[in-house]
Design a protein around this nucleic acid. Structure first.
Lengths: 337, 337
DNA sequence: TTGTATGCGTTATCAT
DNA sequence: ATGATAACGCATACAA
């Protein structure tokens, strides 16, 4: 391994001069600086992040907490897309990304301690149980954190605008003439609560009556439970003319159930998803859905986290709302009720 | 931050005694050891990975190279599942995982240098262009590497058994009575080559004649190109009775095209996918596909990489083949040709 | 069994 | 403008 010492020997300058030159310090002469850089290059020098960290206390490394109890974040297209965007932006800003887990080897370790152990400058938290005491410990610690899709006290949060999303969907469905709209929702999280709020408030605004049996609980990313809920809805005495699903993926479960009932989308029943994953756009009929802006979500998460790290003293926690986009598709039929 | 020094002061023992006790050295007395551990616990001590690394040269951190030119690995369910499994096993064995990219901040950096910079003990490589000189540089370097789905000289490779997979599919389809089997394949990689080999050799063994126009190029994970290929196949004077797709996801493109032609699966035409992603099992009819064992792939990758790291001297590079499993589904119709 | 001293590669402080 | 030196937190060779 080529070290600063080697460069020092080869170039004849002291290690401190070399260090300064390599870091672009203004106190080093133009020529020396050039020479040193040249030598460093020739020798294939690269700094050692660990040694640097030991002095500077900056690792230029951020942790990511992406643990889904079901199938661990990554399997979920929405979260993997967000994560990917976090990664791109972090790299652009000079930060690497390390996964944070609850234990390393046989040793159990809290998320917080894991971050300390790896000297993470900050952490992006998403797709976790925000009631987990360990998550809370981490968020409340001195380590800068940014949460995605969950507001925790006054910590910085990047939020996909779920209220607006479900509102726009309802509005669109209403505009198409539907008055009997059912909503199959995911498990009880703040995301779900916001979507429900958007749903109810828009219905109210539009004067739509929503019978309780039109609201069905299911699970995110779980076609089975949505399929079940769909069956219940279809078997109602007065079934809805349009069903909103927890997410595009879950809709697959509904789709099968609808076909089993011999119904056709959108002629016999209209449907809408959520997320706008690729799948939704290649299904036929194209699914009406609300596309969350995963790119912006990840990018803002990384940007704000790094701002919080860099301007630790002046950075003010904030909530950032990322808007999405309605993809009309062809799964909601124009109707005259 | 609580350091060994703090514990030393509080407990009255020297830093080296503390260090040894904490690392379970046998040269420290039972009681002292216990006492020191107790104090360390009380003070909330956790070691500093960077400082430790500086001495030991082991980071207990592995890098992952997961860059797809199309949509960056993570969006691909197959790869994200593999990655997830790598992560789980690595963590179990006491290793963290850091993403490796080509540049950090504005500074361009080869993959190899990035690994050095972060002191990765080893790297898992998947889903990249294996002709990239930088990838080659990394594989040929002194850093232990494990590749997934690609054999590079005599480096350790974890291979999903694509030859067997496509063979079994052909055999199954043949057993169902089909003799006119088309194959839409992905871009030219070693994975594709193996699948093609399996396809051709099994056809030959079974005495099936494969016209050239039954073999169509498309792209992995790209429904559009598979849709196009499907159209061409359906428009043939003598169209196939069964179409094999590059992967389950791509099949969606074919599915739409088939519907557009007014055909029904499997009554009018049979189809098969590859991967066995969740989607394939919730589609109706359930897709006939070959499920790759992502869990085993990731686990073996992590295990072998860490073995290579630990037993650097004695570890012998090897190829490990991971078998998958045919999921018959209902998309291939029994026919009497 | 325990303690002392040293060094990993880097940066920062203080001289020169 | 450049250099000597110390320090970051830890592990280890060696001394006691």
């Amino acid at each position: 391994m080529v070290t600063i010492k080697d460069i020092s020997k080869k170039s004849g300058f002291s290690t401190s001069t070399v260090s300064k030159a390599l870091n672009g310090s203004s106190e080093i002469g133009e020529e020396t600086s050039e020479l040193i850089k040249k030598v460093a290059n020739e020798m294939g020098y690269f700094p050692n992040a660990a040694a640097r960290l030991l002095k500077t206390k900056h690792s230029n490394n951020i942790g990511v907490l992406f643990i889904d109890e079901m199938q661990s974040g990554l399997a979920h297209e929405y979260f993997s897309a967000v994560l990917n965007s976090v990664k791109d932006e972090a790299e652009r800003l000079g930060y690497d990304m390390t996964f944070i887990s609850r234990n390393i080897g046989r040793k159990p370790m809290s998320y917080y301690n894991h971050c300390k152990y790896r000297n993470c400058d900050g952490v992006v938290i998403a797709c976790v149980d925000f009631n987990d005491p360990e998550v809370i410990e981490l968020i409340q610690s001195e380590i800068p954190t940014v949460t995605i899709d969950h507001i925790f006290n006054d910590c910085t949060a990047i939020m996909s605008d779920n209220l607006k999303g479900s509102s726009e969907l309802v509005q669109y469905i209403y505009d198409k003439g539907h008055r009997k709209i059912a909503f199959i929702h995911g498990e009880n999280t703040s995301v779900t609560q916001r979507r429900l709020s958007g749903f109810y408030s828009t219905c109210k605004k539009l004067g739509i009556n929503v019978p309780n049996e039109y609201i069905k609980p299911a699970r995110y990313h779980d076609p089975k439970s949505s399929g079940l809920a769909t069956r219940e809805l279809l078997n109602l005495k007065d079934p809805p003319t349009c069903i909103m699903y927890p997410d595009d993926f879950s809709f697959i479960g509904g789709m099968n159930e609808i076909e089993k009932h011999g119904l056709k989308i959108p002629d016999d029943i209209s449907v809408a998803g959520y997320d706008g994953i690729y799948l939704s756009q290649v299904l036929r009929p194209q699914l009406c859905t609300f596309k969350q802006n995963t790119e912006a979500l990840g990018k803002e998460a990384a940007r704000n986290l790094i701002m919080a790290i860099t301007d630790r003293k002046t950075f003010v926690p904030k909530q950032i709302w990322i808007e999405g986009e309605l993809l009309a598709g062809k799964s909601v039929k124009e109707t005259d009720f």
